[in-house]
Nucleic acid binder design. Structure first.
Length: 859
RNA sequence: GGGCAUUUAGCUCAGCUGGGAGAGCAUCUGUUUGACGUACAGAAGGUCGGCGGUUCGAUCCCGUCAGUGCCCACCA
């Protein structure tokens, strides 16, 4: 028997271990159709937050739903080594102990990193368990494990051989704190306050100067020329002349390039090829030198005279001071400009010329775009995200994949110590002593891009790969479409020849109650553990997946979690009521022939509910699915049926009583199966208390619509009854009567005998006298099958007024309905059922109107 | 500069292919009705951002303006 109180903690305790130990999470029922999901691997950098909880709960709902629907579900877990992010954290921890990674050396550092990984993997495992995720741990993977390394090497070598990976000197984004290259999307741009410095560049042997402005004066040491637009009349005569660079008084030429925007600033631009991507392109076109003037830690190098070894910002300040002293400073303007920061270290990224490895994106992007125009495309849900994906693919630049880190997949390239020859190979060259391996590792996303197939064993032809690839639905937040989704797609198309997943379900980000991003610096983060301790994981799961709409952000709301818990409490108590009534009673199949009208009503409503919930579950629209269920639980089941069924339960007719019990049990079981994917713990607890049950709700089938249990006519009659009860209650409030005050009711039968409903009406309206008649009533409400009059003292004048307002309302409805039915477009284009529905409504309105008019005229 | 989204009750948000404005929370009134006070019954509350258009009819479609949020972009 269920406890008298719903105690989430008690309900949730121990269930996860049982499910796991009994092997319910394991895939492999070969006789069934497969359904695959792979978890977006969380970084081993820390604890999981509410965003993870949201993402994984969605997947768990799908997994549990599909399993109940009869699929062989694989929900594969794993984690990401998260190169930069993790290494940055480990170094931070070391720094607190006064150690740098260089003190330790590569090997020792990696030992530390693996220890870190172990520590956080444990935390993540316990959090997954807390959330109740039905993950198949026997297939768990890590982006840096042996098998994935094999996959990474296979892909790297293959792309290299196809000419899609190359090594080259290009301007990359350099993180001077972590001392590594970054890809474009690892750079976060923000509008920062800065200064715009205007300097005098004197012409050689002349007393004239050009005004040149820059935001980064320290880069002037790397300038090789100034550039003007070839069509700029102001400077036409100066092209090929020389000017003095005010930082070091070196002579540099004035060249012409159409890149320069004549209308911006003075129309003269300084050119620093090794420290700016645009300047780099100009330098290539004009075959210019590309001097590097900074060290890897963003201090100035020996090319910068007395400023050598100063930090870039120190240098900036002191250099401007020097130029000012030499009277070459014209002015300084305050500006706001777009500055790139490292995603992980937050420091300002320095564009620098470096030799790095790149993936040539164009052919791969084209392949992806082409695939999106076929039937084999990835279907994004919501659809609009396919546009985000397409536009990124259309404009993508080559992907810088080498990172100057230690924690990651080491690049499988070897350089000959003497000849410098490059060998790119899965295995080290035989005479390895003559080679050195590239020191760099790959961008962490390089390995996660292979996740949907590498986790299943690729490049080996495993049975799992054959059975479970491709993934059926990938669930992820929109913020990693570029980082991850797009890269999985092009890598899978290249190596598996199909898209990695059929559908991509995109959700938003979770924000705090004020709509702000949750972040450490704001201190507004919420730990899922705290929520779970207070409200239970079922309430959290329910909140996360039902108060959100597809693709949109959501706000964390403790009130909503608490409301979720109240809902579960409702279900708990309803279950308790049913189960206590069932105690000691014989359970049987529902006898369709001896159902009461009320029974037929709830059975019909349940079928509608199953249909609506299933329809929305198939669309992955969990908010809508749960709303249908919620309305059923509150409006139809607990408010109406549970109350009305008390009449049958108190009945002396054993047949009616036991049949109602059978109905109650059937509805309850269906109901908890419908809610089970959302809130598996409470569902399991109730399920195990049913008089007949299997070892776990996880072994049950999802409810199906049973057409033999749909009774339209009875439902319509019971609807009338429910409306009557409501109207009588409202009447009492209006008249300041106590809820249990006795009333006298008169009912007119129109299409049906009221006998079978009499008992219910009496009990729920406290009527002490009910008259049933076939005669017209003088006033009162009109329903489909009956009219109802609550006897009261009301003057004819008052009644007239009431009738008038009713008549006016009806006239408006009739006018609306007529205009629809008289509209050819509506009759032609609208669905048949809709037209039918409208015609019926119209007839109803007319009938009511006539009845009201009739009464009115008799007064 | 380009793109995407968003604006509906005091708050958080639903509203499916145009056809009677909804929920939860909060508010107000009432209730020891034997599943539930984590409750029940009832009520109040909205010019659906502004303007214009299409339509018999617009919260929904089109245009436009405004507010808000996010993403992308090499303007020195």
């Amino acid at each position: 028997m269920l406890d008298s109180r719903y105690d989430a903690k008690k309900v949730e305790e121990g269930k996860y271990e049982t499910w796991k130990n009994k092997g319910y999470f394991k895939a492999g029922e070969k006789d069934k159709e497969k359904f695959t999901m792979v978890i977006p691997p969380p970084n081993v950098t820390g604890m999981l937050h509410l965003g993870h909880a949201w993402n994984t709960t969605i997947q768990d709902i799908i997994a549990r739903y599909k399993k109940a629907k009869g699929f062989d579900v694989l929900f594969l877990p794993g984690m990401d080594h998260a190169g930069i992010a993790t290494q940055a954290k480990i170094e931070e921890r070391l720094r607190k102990q006064g150690i740098s990674r260089y003190d330790l050396g590569r090997e020792k550092f990696l030992e530390k990193a693996w220890e870190w990984k172990k520590e956080y993997a444990e935390t993540i495992h316990s959090q997954w368990a807390m959330l109740g995720l039905s993950l198949d741990y026997s297939r768990e993977r890590f982006t840096l494990d042996e098998g994935l390394n094999q996959a990474v090497n296979e892909v790297f070598v293959s792309l290299y051989e196809k000419g899609l990976i190359y090594r080259g000197e290009r301007i990359i984004n350099w993180d001077p704190k972590l001392k590594t290259a970054l890809s474009n999307i690892e750079v976060i741009h923000s509008d920062d306050k800065g200064k715009f410095y205007y300097f005098k560049y004197y012409l050689e042997n002349e007393d004239r100067y050009l005004e040149v402005a820059t935001t980064r004066p320290e880069t002037m040491f790397g300038d090789v020329c100034v550039v003007v637009n070839p069509n700029d009349e102001r400077y036409k005569g100066l092209i090929n002349k020389k000017v003095y660079n005010p930082c070091n008084h070196e002579l540099i030429p004035i060249i012409a390039d159409s890149y320069v925007d004549m209308s911006f600033g003075t129309g003269v631009m300084k050119c620093t090829p090794a420290h700016d991507p645009n300047d780099f392109n100009i330098a290539i076109r004009h075959n210019l030198k590309m001097p590097i003037i900074m060290n890897d830690d963003a201090t100035m190098n020996e090319k910068c005279l007395e400023f050598a070894s100063l930090d870039r910002y120190d240098c900036r300040e002191k250099l401007v001071e020097k130029i000012k002293n030499e009277s070459n400073l014209i002015k300084i303007e305050d500006i706001v400009h777009n500055v790139g920061h490292s995603e992980r270290s937050q420091v300002v990224v320095e564009p620098m010329l470096k030799k790095q490895w790149f993936v040539k994106m164009k052919p791969l992007a084209e392949q992806s775009l082409k695939n999106q125009m076929t039937d084999d495309k990835v279907e994004f849900i919501p659809e609009r995200f396919s546009k985000v994906f397409n536009s990124w693919m259309e404009n993508v630049e080559d992907w810088c994949i080498s990172r100057q880190l230690w924690w990651g997949h080491r690049i499988p390239a070897y350089y000959h110590k003497v000849t410098g020859e490059i060998v790119v190979s899965k295995n080290p060259p035989k005479d390895i002593e003559n080679y050195v391996q590239d020191e760099d590792v790959l961008d962490t996303w390089f390995s996660s891009a292979l996740w949907p197939f590498s986790t299943l064993g690729w490049p080996n032809k495993t049975s799992d790969l054959k059975r479970y690839f491709p993934v059926d639905v990938m669930v992820t937040a929109y913020d990693i479409i570029f980082f991850w989704v797009s890269r999985m797609i092009f890598q899978s198309l290249e190596f598996m020849k199909v898209a990695p997943f059929k559908k991509c379900l995109i959700h938003g980000l979770i924000r705090d109650s004020l709509g702000r991003k949750m972040s450490k610096s704001l201190g507004n983060g919420i730990d899922p553990k705290d929520v779970i301790n207070k409200y239970g994981v079922d309430a959290l799961r329910y909140f996360l997946t039902t108060s959100t709409s597809p693709g949109l952000d959501t706000r964390y709301s403790e009130e909503k979690i608490s409301a979720s818990k109240n809902y579960l409490n409702k279900i708990w108590n309803a279950s308790r009521f049913i189960l206590s009534n069932l105690e000691g009673k014989k359970i049987d199949k529902i006898d369709v022939k001896s159902l009461t009208l009320i029974d037929e009503f709830i059975l019909t409503k349940l079928q509608e509910c199953i249909e609506n919930v299933t329809f929305n579950m198939e669309k992955y629209d969990f908010a809508n699915a749960s709303t249908h269920l919620y309305n059923f639980v509150y409006d139809d089941f607990t408010s109406c049926y549970l109350e009305l069924s008390k009449v049958s339960l108190a009945s002396k007719n054993q047949n009616i009583q036991s049949n109602t019990l059978n109905v109650l049990l059937y509805v309850l079981k269906s109901l908890i199966l419908l809610i089970y994917p959302y809130t598996p713990f409470i569902a399991e607890e109730i399920y195990l208390n049913l008089p007949v049950h299997k070892d776990s709700i996880m072994l049950e089938k999802y409810p199906e619509v049973d057409k033999t249990l749909i009774f339209k006519e009875s439902t319509s009659l019971v609807n009338d009854l429910i409306n009557m009860i409501k109207d009588v209650r409202a009447f009492k409030v209006n008249e300041n009567l106590a809820p249990n005050a006795p009333v006298k009711l008169i009912i007119k039968e129109k299409t049906h005998s009221f006998d079978s409903l009499l008992e219910y009406l009496k009990r729920f309206t406290f009527a002490n006298e009910i008259t049933i008649t076939k005669d017209e009533l003088k006033g009162g409400k009109i329903y489909n099958h009956f009219d109802l009059l609550v006897e009261q003292t009301i003057s004819d004048e008052e009644l007239k007024l009431k009738l008038e307002t009713e008549i006016e309302k009806l006239k408006i409805e009739i006018k609306r309905s007529e205009s629809m039915l008289n509209n050819e477009n509506f009759l032609l284009k609208a669905k048949k059922e809709k037209v039918e529905l409208e015609k019926n409504k119209y007839q109803d309105y007319l009938n009511k109107l006539n009845a009201y008019l009739d009464r009115y005229n008799k007064l």
